[in-house]
Each structure stands twice: as structure tokens, then as C-alpha cells.
Computed example of a mutant assay.
Amino acid sequence: MSVKTAKVWLYVKEFKGEVNSSNFELIEEQINEIQDGEFLAEAIYLSVDPYQRTFQLQFPIGHVIIGRQVAKIIESKNENFPIGSLVFGNFGWRSLTIVDPKTFKNKYDLYLLPDIGQLSSSLALGVLGMPGNSAYYGFLDLCRPKEGETVAISAAAGAVGSIVGQIAKIKGCKVIGFAGSDEKCKWLETELGFDKAINYKSENIEDQLKKAAPKGVDCYFDNVGGTLSSIIIDQMAMFGRISICGAITSYNDKRVMVPSLTNFHRRNLRMEGFMNYRWIDQWMKEGMFEMLKWIQEGKIKCQETITEKFENTPKAFIELFTGGNVGKAIVKI
């Protein structure tokens, strides 16, 4: 049997301030023969997500960069994971991984992909995976939108925000999205059907939001935190609901503006943060398949920014924080 070598990205310098290439190092690692109960997975697609910026800090220098991937099983000594199957795995930034399923305690960290027909398996990292389910449950369960209400979304052109907006339209809401370029705003309005998209970098956010939502915002899905979120929360309607999915503005800079608590008191607002794993038991029973149905019905459009080659994974990750992606950012191996 020929010796196989995996490419692996390591975390070699602590994330402080802006992420750059010096935080990463590419190495090669020899792959041993698999043992009984194990299988060997070859990465097809890697996911890059903002959460990795903060979660990686839990691990020591020299650790493999964390992350999820879609892989193909190329060797197996486990009848539950046959050769040729596609698998979703929390394997990190690796091209080859020996997997012992018994070591995975979380049911969402390892599973065989369900049949999704002719759709790309990369969607398991986006609309059918963590971002899509974050949008589905984080919006519907926490914001509880009603038909005719006004919904605002920050980072609306991203993997989660773009899905939240489309779900809000399905539920009969008016949707206002915030994005960082005219091109993204045009895409939100013309392709995804947002009622209004506001370029937070070039437009007067307060004035534009007042025009778009003269009666205030009923539901706010927050992906960014900071000044933008403070402005939006200042224009919430009575009994408004705020779902906190992320705070990307604080990932590189902790000195950010926070909203005034006065508005929460005066307007009876409710704000709740979440981590997507709180709904894990429901993902495989409802969330994934409801999203799949909406895709097949043409109610949800899936946009991916694909970066080619494993070697370019850090580049794809860094661009998340500079607005380089539209929809879900994926690396194709």
C-alpha cells in the first residue's frame, strides 16, 4: 500500500487584531493505515466561517485550524461508513483525515450526507448546514416574525444573513438588509427580493433606515454588533425582537459601540443571543429538510463564493473579514 500524505494548516500565531497569513503554517503529515472501526476521508470542500476566529483561541499554538468539511470516504473498516460515501465532518483544515466515529460525541460533528439530488454537496456547509440552520432557528424561534412586520438584517449578503432575508420574505415580511458594497446591495434587492438594501459604508444609515422603516423595525437579526447594530436598535418598534447570531465587528477590535439599554426599557424590547448547537437535535429532523424543500421549490437561492485549492484556505478565511465573500465562503480542494 502506498504511503499517503495529508496537507494540514496549523495555527502558529495567536489571532490579535486583523487575521493575516502569519497566523497559519502549511505542513504535510504522513497518514497511517486505518484500524478496525475507522475510515479515511478525503476533503472535497472546506468551510471558512467567522466563528473560527474566536473559537480557535481555545486551542494552543500548533493546533490544526478548526473547521468543517465535506469529504469522500476512500478507505473504510467501518460498515456504517462505506467507501464512496460523502460525509460531513468537523475534521479541521486537513486534506486527509483518519476518522474513528467513536471519538465524536456531538452528533452534528460527523454524519453521512443525506440524498440531496443534483445539488452540490457543498451546500451541507452552508444553507443545509450550520449557517442555514442558524438562520432558520435563530430567526424563526427567537424573532418569531409575523406577516407584514419589518425585518432588518446586518451582514445581509453573508452566509447566514442572506438566508434569513429569504426566510423572512417567505413569511411575508418586509426585509431591509445592510451590506458593505453597492454590488452586494443590488444583489440583495434584484436576486434575493429584499425590499431595501443599504450600503452601511457609503450611505447615511440612520436616514436610510428611517425612510425604509418609518414605523420602526420589528425584528433585527444581528450578525455584526457594534455601531451599525446600535443604530438599528435605536430604531426598533415597540415589542421588537433581536436575535444575536454574531458580532463580527468585535472579533478583530474589542473596542466597539454597544446599544443603549434605555431603548430596551422604553420600547419593551427583547434580545437573545444563541449558539447554533442548541437546536442540533432538530437539524436532521426538520431544519435541513425544510431548507432543502424551499431550495427545490425555488423559494431560496444559494450563493457561494468558491476559492479553489487547499493552499488558498487562509486567503478565503481572511477575506471573510474584509467583505470578500457573497453568501457562503467555501474552499474547493
Rank of each mutant, 00 (worst) to 15 (best):
V217M: 08
V164P: 08
R270H: 14
M238R: 15
E272H: 08
D207L: 12
F178L: 11
E272V: 11
K201V: 03
G240Y: 05
Q56A: 06
T227H: 10
E319Q: 12
E25A: 11
V48Q: 07
V258F: 02
V99F: 05
K215H: 10
V8Y: 09
S230E: 14
K211S: 12
Q166N: 14
L26V: 10
K285G: 09
L192H: 08
R267A: 09
K16R: 13
E79M: 13
I163K: 01
V127I: 14
K174W: 11
I65N: 04
N90F: 14
K4F: 00
F104A: 03
V99I: 15
A6K: 02
L113R: 01
F39Q: 07
E25W: 04
N276L: 11
K146F: 09
T307M: 05
E25C: 07
P214F: 08
K184A: 13
I306N: 09
G240H: 07
K184L: 11
N78R: 12
A156T: 09
G246C: 05
K107W: 03
K328G: 05
L86D: 01
C245M: 03
F55Y: 11
K328P: 05
C302A: 13
F88T: 07
V256S: 01
Q166P: 15
I198V: 06
Q303N: 11
S121L: 09
I153E: 02
A41G: 02
A159Q: 09
T54M: 13
E79D: 14
V12N: 01
M257F: 11
T150K: 05
I244H: 04
A157C: 06
G161S: 14
A155I: 06
F39N: 06
E28W: 15
G138I: 01
T5Y: 11
N276W: 10
V160T: 04
K186E: 15
K16W: 13
L142Q: 00
K301P: 08
L125F: 06
A156V: 10
Y45K: 14
F59T: 10
K105E: 12
Q303K: 15
S76I: 11
N32K: 12
E290I: 06
I244R: 04
K196Q: 13
K105F: 07
K301E: 15
G172N: 13
K201F: 04
V99L: 05
S181V: 04
V175D: 02
K285N: 15
D36W: 09
E183K: 15
E189S: 08
G216P: 02
E189K: 14
L110A: 10
V256Q: 07
A316F: 00
S154Y: 00
N20T: 11
K196V: 12
G298S: 03
K293I: 03
L110D: 09
E191V: 00
V3T: 13
G37M: 09
A155V: 08
V127T: 14
K315E: 14
D141K: 10
Y11Q: 02
S85Y: 07
P50N: 07
Y11E: 02
I73K: 01
V331G: 03
N133W: 10
G240L: 08
T54S: 12
G287A: 08
Q56S: 06
V19C: 12
T322G: 06
A212V: 06
